[in-house]
C-alpha cells in the first residue's frame, strides 16, 4: 500500500464532539506566498472589456431599430356630423360630389357629379378635379368650382379604405381646401 492511499481511519478527523453533539473544526489560515514574501497584494480587477462589447452591441441595435418614424404620414380630413350631410353647418351652393362605388374589376368606380367624363383611376380623378377648378392664380379659368368650394366624398359601404383615402388624396392634390366625407351610401 502506497503512503498516499491512506485508510479512512488515518484521515485527519475533527476534534472530539462538543457536548451539544456539534463537531468543532480547526480553522486553518491561508497566507499567500506574496504576503509571505513581503510583496504588495495584487489589486483585484474585473475585466470590463467583454461587458462593454456587449453593451455597445445592444446600444447599436436599439438605435438602429428605434422606429421614431414608421414611414407613415397623414392627410387632414373633415368628418361628417350627421346622416347624409357634410360637416359644414351651412353648405355653400355648389358642392362637388365624388361618388365611389365598388366594382369587381379594379375594386372601385368613380363618378363625379356634373363632370363631362368620368375618371377611371385616381390620377385621372385628380386631373379632372383640377380642370373643374376655377383658380386664376394657377391659370385655371375653365372650371366652375373655387378651391374653397366643398368637395364631398361619398363612398359606398363596401368600398375599400385604400380607395376612399386615394379619392381624398386626389382632391388634396388638386388643391381643394374644403374636403369632407359624407355618410356611406348604403346606409344613407
Amino acid at each position: 500500500m502506497s503512503p498516499d492511499a491512506q485508510s479512512p481511519d488515518s484521515w485527519p478527523m475533527p476534534n472530539a464532539p462538543a457536548p451539544g453533539g456539534h463537531q468543532v473544526y480547526e480553522t486553518v489560515h491561508h497566507h499567500s506566498l506574496r504576503k509571505k514574501r513581503g510583496l504588495p497584494p495584487v489589486k483585484m480587477q474585473v475585466n470590463l472589456t467583454s461587458m462593454i462589447d456587449v453593451i455597445f452591441q445592444l446600444l447599436i441595435y436599439f438605435i438602429v431599430t428605434a422606429t421614431f418614424s414608421v414611414g407613415e404620414g397623414a392627410i387632414t380630413a373633415k368628418l361628417p356630423t350627421g346622416p347624409g350631410t357634410p360637416s359644414q353647418a351651412k353648405p355653400p351652393d355648389r358642392p362637388l360630389n365624388i361618388i365611389l362605388s365598388s366594382a369587381s374589376s379594379s375594386g372601385y368606380r368613380i363618378s363625379v357629379r356634373g363632370a363631362p367624363s368620368q375618371p377611371t383611376s385616381f390620377s385621372e380623378l385628380g386631373e379632372l378635379l383640377m380642370r373643374l377648378q376655377y383658380n386664376p392664380e394657377r391659370g385655371l379659368t375653365e372650371g366652375a368650382y373655387k378651391p374653397d368650394n366643398p368637395v364631398i366624398i361619398k363612398p359606398a359601404g363596401d368600398v375599400r379604405w385604400q380607395h376612399v383615402v386615394n379619392a381624398f388624396n386626389a382632391a388634396v392634390r388638386a388643391r381643394y381646401m374644403n374636403i369632407s366625407f359624407a355618410q356611406s351610401q348604403s346606409e344613407g
Binding site: A74, I75, T76, A77, L79, W161, V164, V165, Q183, S184
Partner: peptide, 23 residues
C-alpha cells in the same frame, strides 16, 4: 368604408371635427 365609418362617427360625436388619415 362601412367598417371605418362608425369610428369616424364616434370621433365626430366627441366634438372632434378634423381627423388625420394615415397613409
Amino acid at each position: 368604408f362601412e367598417a371605418v365609418q362608425p369610428v369616424m362617427q364616434a370621433i365626430a360625436s366627441a366634438q372632434i371635427q378634423t381627423v388625420h388619415l394615415v397613409a
